[in-house]
Amino acid sequence: MTDVPIIRVRGLTTRFGDHVVHDGLDLEVARGEILGVVGGSGTGKSVLLRQIIGLLDPAAGRIEVLGQPVTGTTPQSFRKLRRRWGVMFQGGALFSSLTVRENVEIPLREQTDLPQALRETLAAIKVRMVGLPQDAMGKHPAQLSGGMRKRAGFARAIALDPEIVFLDEPTAGLDPIGAAALDTLIGQLRDALGLTVFLVTHDLDTLHAICDRVAVLAERKVLAVGTIAELRALPHPWVHDYFSGPRGRAAAGER
C-alpha cells in the first residue's frame, strides 16, 4: 500500500454549463485497497468515476491510472489501458439480448482471441465465483432479480482479471442480506484476485465492512480521505452528520 498510487487524480475540474461540480479535486488510490467514495447527492461521485474510466472528459486536470494518462491520450494506448480495469454500473447494465454467460463472455471475446471452449469455461468460472447458481448462466437479464443482475454485472467486470474494478453503488436497492453478501464477495475477490476496488456508495454498512479508506466528496473537492475512525474525528459538519448521525452510529455500533 506504500508504492506508487494506482489511480492519481490531480486538479480535476468539471463543469456542466455554469454549474461547477469539481474544482481542483485531488485523489489517490493505492494498489490493493478498497476505497469508498461518499458524498451528498449531486457532489459528482458518479461523474468522478466516469471521468476516471474515460467516459467523460474533465474541463481541466489530470487523471492517471496505472501510471498512464487517461485524458489526452491516443485511442490505441487508451484501449490497452482499458483492458486492465473492469466496471460495474449501477443497475448491472447487462446487455438484455444476451444470457448471463454470454454477457460475461463479451470482454473475453472482444479483448482476447481465446478458443470458444476456453472462453465458456472461464466465463462459467466467473459466474460461479460471484455466487450465481448454475442455472442462472442461460438466463436473460430480464429473468433475474436486481441482486442477481448486480452479481452478473460484477462477474462481467472481473471477466478479464482486471487490476482495478470500479463499482457504482454496488449494494443500492438490495435487501440487507443480499447487500451484506455482496460486500463479503467484494472483499473475498479482492483477496483472491488481488484487485484494487474503487467504490461509489451510500451504504454505510459497506463502508464499515470492507472499505480500507473512505474519500468524502464535498464542497467541489475531496474533503478528506482516511479510515472511518479518522473521519469520525473530523469536525466538519457534513462529515460529522454522515458518520455520527443515527444511521452512521447504527452501522458502526454493530461492530
Partner: peptide, 13 residues
C-alpha cells in the same frame, strides 16, 4: 485464487 476457482468450477453444460 486457486481455491476460489476450484469452488467455482462447474460441470460443463
Amino acid at each position: 485464487l486457486i481455491a476460489a476457482v476450484r469452488r467455482s468450477l462447474s460441470s460443463p453444460p
